[in-house]
């Protein structure tokens, strides 16, 4: 019942977002061809390519058929043709995706872990100096936009003290292999990773702390103390265990912010992932590529959220219980 409801919700959301890609260029004044591909593209195009694109998008047909053609192309996995790279959008994205996955994946794992531990420690000692200090500090840190933290790190540790490279993911023509290559990749990863980590750390910390504080007075914690459990056991095996689920789910639900953060940080550091590609597409006004990147991002985020949402009752017995009783009542 719940799954079916969720599928309809997510399916409709996906339809709306994909249709935006159809509606937006046609909302702009003038020729939709111009809006979809941009003026610069038009100048660089041979008449044959133009004719091929027009017939593939059915731009010479009525609006209904154009819509059908748009959806058929999407279903085939055809996101359009990137005139800037002279290649299909999907294959361009595929070439840039791995670096983004490396960056965002490690940022997600590291910040969730560190934020969780800091949140449990701080929440369990609510009101202590450690708690006040980390709460104020991280709250301020969380308000700083990722691109500004990144810019400061870049200026401090790459420009002022050149400890880390200015940009890129590996030293070009470095001719390194094995461990040296690995170290090189890590050195390039350090600053972008640090900026994403810093911003996400705060949000995980604040959520964990709030959850922990909410749990502090519960009877099962009192029982644990009465049994004589050690402070560490109470923090991690009781409070931490109970707080884990909301944190795991919001880690999934905050993926959209991570994706946007990755775009900005990658542009900043010239990291060759989706963000750098997005920056290129923006400055070249390569609209099909731009739309492709955002669609792939949205699809990833929606798929993850759907998974998290539908796994939630399996992970948390309490939700499962309320769900079944709610269905019975209906």
């Amino acid at each position: 019942m719940r799954i079916r409801r969720l599928t309809v919700d997510y399916g409709t959301a996906l339809l709306i977002l994909c249709s935006l890609g159809f509606i937006l260029p046609r909302l702009l004044p003038g020729d939709p061809f111009l809006a979809i591909y941009g003026e610069e593209a038009l100048l660089n195009m041979t008449p044959e390519t133009k004719a091929a694109i027009i017939s593939s998008l059915s731009l010479d047909k009525p609006l209904g058929e154009q819509f059908a053609a748009y959806w058929l192309a999407l279903l085939r996995g055809d996101l359009g043709w990137s005139y800037f790279f002279q290649a299909p959008v999907l294959s361009v994205i595929g070439a840039f995706l791995p670096w983004s996955l490396l960056l965002s994946g490690s940022a997600l794992v590291l910040s969730t872990l560190a934020g969780f531990i800091a949140g449990v420690e701080s929440g369990a000692r609510r009101g202590s100096r450690f708690d006040n200090f980390s709460f104020t500090g991280l709250m301020a840190l969380g308000g700083i936009p990722d691109f500004f933290i990144g810019a400061l790190l870049l200026l401090a540790f790459a420009v002022h003290w050149p400890l880390f490279p200015l940009g890129g993911a590996v030293t070009a023509y470095g001719g390194k292999s094995g461990w040296a290559l690995g170290a090189d990749v890590l050195r390039h990863l350090a600053l972008p990773l640090a900026s994403l980590f810093a911003v996400r750390l705060a949000s995980v910390y604040l959520l964990t702390r709030a959850t922990v504080v909410g749990l502090l007075g519960s009877p099962f914690i009192r029982t644990a103390r009465a049994k004589g459990c050690s402070a560490a056991a109470i923090r991690y095996r009781h409070i931490g265990r109970a707080a884990l689920l909301p944190i795991a789910t919001t880690a999934g639900l905050h993926l959209a912010h991570l994706f946007a953060g990755v775009l900005m940080v990658e542009i900043l550091f010239g990291y060759p992932g989706m963000g750098a590609l997005f920056g290129k597409a923006l400055s070249a006004r390569d609209y099909p590529l731009l739309q492709g990147i955002l669609l792939v991002g949205t699809l990833t985020v929606l798929a993850t959220n759907f998974l998290v949402d539908s796994l939630y009752p399996i992970l948390d017995a309490r939700v499962r219980k309320t769900c079944t009783s709610a269905t019975k009542q209906q």
Binding site: Y10, Q291, L294, T298
Partner: peptide, 15 residues
């Protein structure tokens, strides 16, 4: 369900 940050980016990039 729609992530606001991505939806707004998509719309703003065009408009």
């Amino acid at each position: 369900v729609i992530p606001p940050i991505l939806g707004a980016m998509l719309a703003a990039a065009y408009l």
